[in-house]
Design a binder for these strands. Structure first.
Lengths: 240, 240
DNA sequence: ATTTACAAACAGTCTAGTCTGTTTTTTAAC
DNA sequence: GTTAAAAAACAGACTAGACTGTTTGTAAAT
């Protein structure tokens, strides 16, 4: 393999180099740029005002190039959605690497997902897509499909994080937390007060830790429940 | 000659009082029809595909009549939103009348709001409006304004329902429940499984009742916490 | 030489808001 | 009490712009 990494530089319009493997790279780059632009545009102008023309302009490419890679608007939207899912993976990788989530406190992980995922405008964009999927059945099917593998990976992560003996209860707990975070994302978007959300997040962490302590026969949570009474009642303020 | 001297009143407010209720009635009816049609259309086709023409057609009125009552599309949307809020009031009135919420179990009220408000497609419509308000600042301001009085009334209801001595905690609890319900609404819309939502609702009710028992020095919640250990661990299936 | 990547113009459709005109109701004068 | 003027309710056409998908054309890569 020749050292052709140097030829990877240069501007978009002209790159006259007879390099093998270049076509696929170019295509992938272009798709990446378009998806990122689509996501940015979606965050900025919202789903209703999002147009394919605007996406192409944002990415700095012609509309012809765009339609070559994403024939229809729905293709473009699905691409943006997948791009967002990948960015979440990247953020998680950056924060925790390959660390075992089982050794992580629940609070740490929850604050991470709130800070890096749910509280971002891009999550609202994702919600807009999901709500739009209610009437656009084909889009919905494709979004669900894109979410399929990430969702099962999320299940594995939460399994590692929580380790409830009762898997059914663990799942309930997971979905409850997910719903809460989604609702908080909406609240943060529509209302102005971030203070409320911070307080709710703190309160949920506190409540959740008690549930975890009870559900999981960990080192510190005996079956007898000697911790429970005090734990449930102790709503001491968290410093955040 | 009837007593129409009232009409010579003062200056600007040209609002004749004698007997003519006909015009106002017609106007109110038409607005009602349009708002209902707008809400229906919003539920059926979603925010992105909602058009003023479609609303007028659905209401069975001409576009001229529509623009007379709602000059702009945003006016129409705000009208639909207010209409929805009123329908929630009506449902609550139907279910509980003037009953004191303090005598109502938390579970009963929560199941009511889930069944009659949050699980309905119209709530998704409301969410679409709220998300759209993120970029349409003027719409957002008007929606928040429309929600202002209903929200403070909701606060009063939850105060009556929960009666926590610590008002701050009560507010946290209220917002937590609200966020949870919102998130569940999205989940119900995007995913297919209602079973998950039912389970989450059950679980939240159970958890919430413990929080209530601890926070509120009611008749049945002793300070000693003799109920807590068994209660927290007992996730017995609820019959619903 | 043939496929892929990119470019740009085009066509058909649709939408929100405006404008002009008609009917009904209300007000005010007679 | 009748009637004319005014205002409000209603109807429908029109416009200017925008959007998506298509099509035709060119450059680059294989």
């Amino acid at each position: 393999m020749p050292a052709d990494m140097v030829s990877r530089e240069g501007a978009a319009p002209s790159a006259p180099r007879p390099n093998p493997r270049r076509q696929a790279q170019r295509s992938a780059d272009m798709r990446q740029r378009l998806c990122q632009a689509a996501l940015d545009a979606l965050c900025e102008v919202g789903y209703e005002s999002l147009t394919t023309t605007m996406i192409a302009a944002r990415a700095g490419v012609s509309r012809g190039a765009q339609t070559h890679h994403f024939a229809t608007k729905a293709d473009m939207l699905v691409g943006a959605f997948e791009h967002l899912l990948q960015s979440w993976d990247a953020a998680r990788q950056l924060a925790f690497g390959g660390r075992d989530l089982g050794e992580l406190p629940f609070e740490a992980y929850l604050r991470f997902v709130w800070r890096e995922i749910f509280s971002k405008p891009s999550y609202i964009a994702a919600l807009e897509l999901m709500l739009a999927a209610r009437v656009d059945k084909e889009l919905g099917e494709r979004l669900r499909q894109a979410l399929d593998s990430p969702a099962s990976q999320r299940n594995l992560r939460w399994r590692a994080l929580l380790r409830f003996p009762d898997v059914r209860k663990e799942e309930q707990f997971q979905y409850m937390t997910l719903c809460l975070l989604r609702g908080m994302a909406i609240h943060a978007s529509f209302n102005r007060s971030d203070a409320v959300n911070e307080a709710v997040l703190d309160a949920w962490i506190e409540l959740a830790e008690k549930v975890i302590a009870v559900e999981r026969p960990d080192g510190r949570a005996p079956e007898g429940g000697v911790v429970s009474p005090r734990a449930v009642r102790g709503h001491s303020k968290r410093s955040a």
